[in-house]
């Protein structure tokens, strides 16, 4: 248990028939790190994440999340991770508070803890006024931040964010990244995918996936040097051609 790594992945592979969606990816993520998981559309990012969070069984290879095996202990992993999918997945027909209570409830938090968490989230996201509104009536940016907060309602060690800032305005994106930094400062690991290359610059380390394989993995600074590029944008374009 006492490894410095939150995520250890070794030759993790997923095949669908003849198609290899994820091809033997290998990497490690340190505790408290913000890890950017980049790649073009269809490169296999989402499939890879689904294996890491226990939604999809790997065909081959080994993965350890928070010390648990992705193949054999997915339910133990689930207690220790949070996940926010690229598809918005709160209940539209529940209010803000009801959503927090429901997810807190199924993570097995105590009634008192749920109450604390509710106040905390409402205050942090400044949602107190709309706490009794249905989630469907909120603007997308608010919904996404709420989804992020709810994915961490049980204080997980690691949080997986699959394109959390897709479709939100620059101000909300900024707030989002401020929250991500706060989370990382508390020692939690953030695993994030994105298509915004400026966001990639905020990450501690970045991997770039091309056609199921990880083609590059380093800090944004080193990657730019390695590929003789001035921005992450250029690095990405050079790789993902």
């Amino acid at each position: 248990m006492n490894t410095p790594f939150a995520i250890e992945v070794d030759k993790l592979t997923k095949r669908f028939g003849d198609f290899i969606a994820v091809n033997a990816i290998t990497f490690k993520v340190k505790k408290g790190e913000i890890f950017g998981f980049l790649g073009a559309n269809g490169a296999g990012k989402t499939t890879a994440i689904k294996m890491l969070i226990g939604l999809s069984k790997p065909t081959e290879g080994m993965g350890k999340i928070a010390g648990f095996n992705v193949d054999t202990e997915p339910e133990k992993i689930k207690k220790n991770i949070g996940y926010m999918s690229q598809k918005f997945s709160l209940y539209d027909d529940l209010t803000v508070v009801e959503n927090i209570q429901f997810y807190g409830g199924i993570y097995g938090l105590s009634r008192k803890k749920i109450k604390e968490k509710t106040t905390e989230i409402l205050e942090e996201l400044e949602l107190t006024e709309v706490s009794k509104s249905l989630v469907i009536s909120l603007p997308l940016g608010w919904k996404q931040r709420l989804a992020f907060a709810i994915s961490m309602v049980h204080d997980p060690e690691i949080v997986f964010l699959d394109e959390p800032t897709g479709g939100v305005d620059p101000r909300v994106r900024r707030q989002f990244w401020e929250t991500i930094y706060q989370v990382a400062e508390k020692g939690r690991t953030v695993f994030v995918t994105t298509h915004y290359m400026d966001e990639a610059e905020y990450c501690d380390r970045v991997s770039i996936m091309v056609a199921g394989k990880i083609e590059a993995l380093d800090t944004p600074h080193n990657l730019k040097q390695q590929f003789e590029a001035t921005s992450m944008d250029e690095v990405f374009l050079k790789l993902a051609r």
Binding site: E75, K78, K79, Y83, S85, S89, Y91, D92, S151
Partner: peptide
């Protein structure tokens, strides 16, 4: 269809529950 089941499936909720 809505996608909420995926969110449920990443929680430690038991199938019978």
């Amino acid at each position: 269809e809505v996608g909420t089941i995926e969110q449920i499936n990443v929680t430690p909720l038991k199938k019978w529950q």
